[in-house]
């Protein structure tokens, strides 16, 4: 019996938070491959400003859980150099708003080296960063900037909405030979869900996930808005049958899954915390129009930040941040 239990644990699941899922993904990959290391501001001794890497320093060396100076251009650039020479760095940028400081090494080195060199180098680097408003952190610590990276050729961009997606995608990112930006919404670190415990569990980058099936309206959501959309779908379940998709991967984008859903429901809401103009919403809608125009029964709805920065005062912040009520309103307009 004990053997059976152990076997079922290996292939089973465990309830954990997004924070724990990310931490376990890193722990497993650090143990699996000695070329993997983590560096960033306060990732070691401090355990990460959101406690995501808490405990890793005790399990691995200072060499592999490496605290850096506050020097994003320098250490992200060093990550690029290390990745080009056989290491597999995970670089944490504490808040995505700080990515601007390191943008040169991202756009002109990390994203372009493989292509400029005729495919003769790999770039196995993972950039983890936190996005999103909701904790009164004001404009310079609350942004959602993943569209920039999904837009920029040469980069992969993923933004999970559940603990399982967080673990599976991060492990794939670390194993990938391409540069992957992994966007964590800071408001869902405490969100729990079932996560496979098999250390070989990964999720393919480039695939969306249907989190709830429905017949009338499709909500294509990312990050925190996956959970908010599931709440909205549940609340409306007496009136309308809502399908909810966690987009998971911003680039590459799983056109097939979203078009298949559109063909079923004919109505789509796109919910993402980016500013609305030129955002993920725009690209998702474009894919739907290109590939499923004649299945559209109504103009698609976009739910996002209305082209402002994230203000400090809670009443202002709640005004601009999309939530379940905004998704619900969008569904009701369509249904």
């Amino acid at each position: 019996m004990s053997t059976d239990t152990s076997t079922s644990n290996v292939s089973g699941t465990e309830s954990m938070t997004v924070r724990e899922a990310i931490r376990e993904a890193m722990r497993e990959e650090l143990a699996r491959d000695e070329d993997v290391f983590l560096m960033g501001e306060d990732v070691g001794l401090f355990g990460g400003v959101f406690d995501v890497s808490d405990g890793l320093l005790a399990d691995f060396s200072e060499d592999r859980i490496r605290d850096t100076p506050i020097s994003e251009a320098g250490f992200l650039g060093a990550g690029v150099g290390a990745a080009a020479t056989g290491s597999r760095p995970i670089v944490e940028i504490m808040f995505s708003d700080f990515l601007g400081v390191s943008m040169e090494q991202t756009m002109n080195q990390m994203a372009k080296m493989r292509y400029m060199f005729g495919g003769k180098t790999e770039m196995p680097i993972t950039i983890r960063t936190t996005e999103g408003g909701g904790m009164g952190a004001a404009s310079q610590h609350s942004g959602t900037v993943h569209t920039w990276f999904a837009h920029f050729p040469g980069l992969i961009a993923v933004a999970p909405g559940t603990p399982a997606a967080a673990k599976g995608l991060l492990k794939s990112a670390i194993r990938s030979n391409d540069p992957v930006f992994f966007f964590e919404n800071k408001m869902i670190y405490e969100q729990t869900g079932e996560v496979p415990t098999d250390p070989d569990f990964t999720l393919p980058i480039g695939e969306a996930s249907v989190e709830r099936t429905g017949e009338d309206v499709t909500v294509i959501a990312t990050q925190r808005l996956v959970g908010e959309s599931l709440d909205a779908a549940e609340e409306l379940s007496d009136q309308v049958s809502v399908e909810v998709i966690d987009l998971r991967s911003l680039y590459p984008l799983d056109t097939e899954t979203i078009v298949a859903s559109l063909e079923k429901t004919g109505r789509v809401v796109v919910a993402d915390e980016s500013p609305l103009s030129y955002g993920v919403h725009a690209e998702v809608v474009t894919r739907l129009v290109e590939n499923g125009f004649y299945s559209l029964d109504a103009p698609p709805e976009r739910v996002g930040v209305p082209d402002t920065h994230i203000p400090f005062s809670p009443s202002l912040e709640q005004e601009v941040l999309p939530d379940a009520a905004d998704v619900t309103a969008a569904i009701e307009r369509l249904a």
């Binding site: 251009a73 320098g74 992200l76 650039g77 060093a78 990550g79 690029v80 150099g81 290390a82 990745a83 080009a84 020479t85 056989g86 290491s87 760095p89 090494q105 080195q109």
Partner: peptide
Amino acid sequence: PPLATGAALS
């Protein structure tokens, strides 16, 4: 120089 620092780190 950041790339060289990274290669040296590696």
